[in-house]
Amino acid sequence: MERSAMAIPKPKPLSVKNDPLHIIKTRKLTHERPATIAGPMVRYSKLPFRQVCRRYDADIVYTPMILAREFVRNPHARMADFSTNSGDSPFIVQVGTNNVADLLKFVEMVAPFCDGIGINCGCPIREQVREGIGCALIYNGELLCSMVSAVKKKYGDKLRLETKIRIHDDWDQTVKLCRDVCGAGVDWITIHGRTKNTRSSQPADFQAIRYVVDRISDKGVPVVANGDCYLLEDVQQIADLTGAHGVMAVRGVLSNPALFSGFITCPWGCIEWFWYYTLEFGGLPYQLLQHHLFCMLESMEVDRVLIKALMKIKNTTELLDWFDDHFELKRHGERGFGQAVQPPLKR
């Protein structure tokens, strides 16, 4: 059953199983690989999708960015933006905020249900930047450090806190920012290897991430590298190039939630699991359900005529019927459910 955020005094206890910092620091020893992380996507990292990514070897998953000012003031925003359940762990709630007061109230409301908080310092959307949210924070280190310090002063090691940043044109500015947030008490830093103005079509700059990692290593704060992770082999390559403890995929897992399990394209099992979790948990807007399925089918290289037909369907009931008409869509509990790799088209 889903749970909406309510103000409960104590954060959820951390253990070796759900402590994201422990996972990031130890995956190389326990699994001989970096930590694998499914990053935050605006609107798309909802509970059903997080569960699919977790089933396919994502160690840690994120919610979409949630705006603190709306969340703390509007109960309808809380219901729409945040849901979880007992199996949704470990996961990080990412927040967009520009002041300490909203952040502390937000953390108080979600801490009982999550394993960590991530402050978004990387969103380049103009509307957010104009309000001092997202990328604006990498140019306002004093404010960012005050927010990190306020959360850690109140919660200490009972709650993990991350900052997800982009690089500056001047890499030394990024080094200074990272050293400052380390001093403020951040548990780990995720670095997206692009600047605020770098287009997503341009390659991520892993040399820049390496430059920063080498210059903050004395702080003992692990770094997660983000950018251009589309295959399992990319995970180790990115970790080797950057020296990062973990690797985050975002666009890669949107089209292939099984990326971290080594699948080159999305396996059919993801479709069946996603349908199951969506219907089991409820609350996913139809447009998101439709677009998730579109992205996964497109990765499988399903006939474009079929995909175009999918996008014309207007509601969940018709969409489920459409899948049953064109594919052998197994239900949870049926033999072979969630195991197929190739799309089981009906001829």
Rank of each mutant, 00 (worst) to 15 (best):
M1P: 01
E2P: 11
A5N: 03
M6I: 06
M6N: 13
A7W: 09
I8M: 14
P11M: 07
P11L: 07
S15H: 02
D19C: 07
H22S: 02
R27W: 01
K28T: 03
E32V: 06
T36N: 05
A38W: 01
S45A: 15
Q51V: 05
C53G: 02
R54I: 00
R55Q: 13
Y56P: 00
V61Y: 00
Y62G: 07
T63Y: 01
T63A: 01
P64Y: 03
R69L: 07
V72P: 10
R73W: 06
P75W: 11
H76N: 12
R78F: 11
A80H: 13
S86Y: 07
D88F: 05
V93P: 00
V95W: 05
D102S: 12
L103S: 13
L103H: 08
L103T: 05
V107W: 09
V110W: 07
A111K: 11
C114N: 12
G118T: 06
I119H: 03
R126V: 11
E127W: 12
V129G: 07
E131N: 12
Y139H: 15
N140T: 05
G141W: 03
E142P: 05
C145P: 13
S149W: 05
K152V: 10
Y155T: 03
Y155G: 00
K158I: 02
R160P: 00
E162D: 08
I165F: 06
H168L: 04
H168N: 08
W171S: 05
K176L: 10
L177H: 00
R179I: 11
V186K: 05
T190Q: 06
I191M: 11
S200C: 08
S201Q: 10
P203Q: 11
D205K: 14
F206D: 06
F206P: 05
A208E: 00
V212Q: 05
I216T: 10
D218G: 03
V221F: 01
V224H: 02
V224P: 01
N226Q: 03
L231Y: 08
L232K: 15
L232A: 13
E233C: 02
A239V: 00
T242Y: 00
G243T: 01
G246Y: 00
V250C: 08
R251A: 08
S261M: 06
T265K: 14
I271T: 07
F274G: 04
Y277W: 13
T278D: 09
G283C: 06
L284H: 03
Y286D: 02
L288V: 11
H291C: 06
C295F: 08
E298K: 12
E301F: 14
V302T: 13
M311P: 01
K312A: 15
K314A: 12
T316S: 14
L319V: 09
E328Y: 15
L329I: 14
K330L: 15
K330E: 09
R335P: 06
R335N: 13
G338C: 11
A340S: 14
P344N: 07
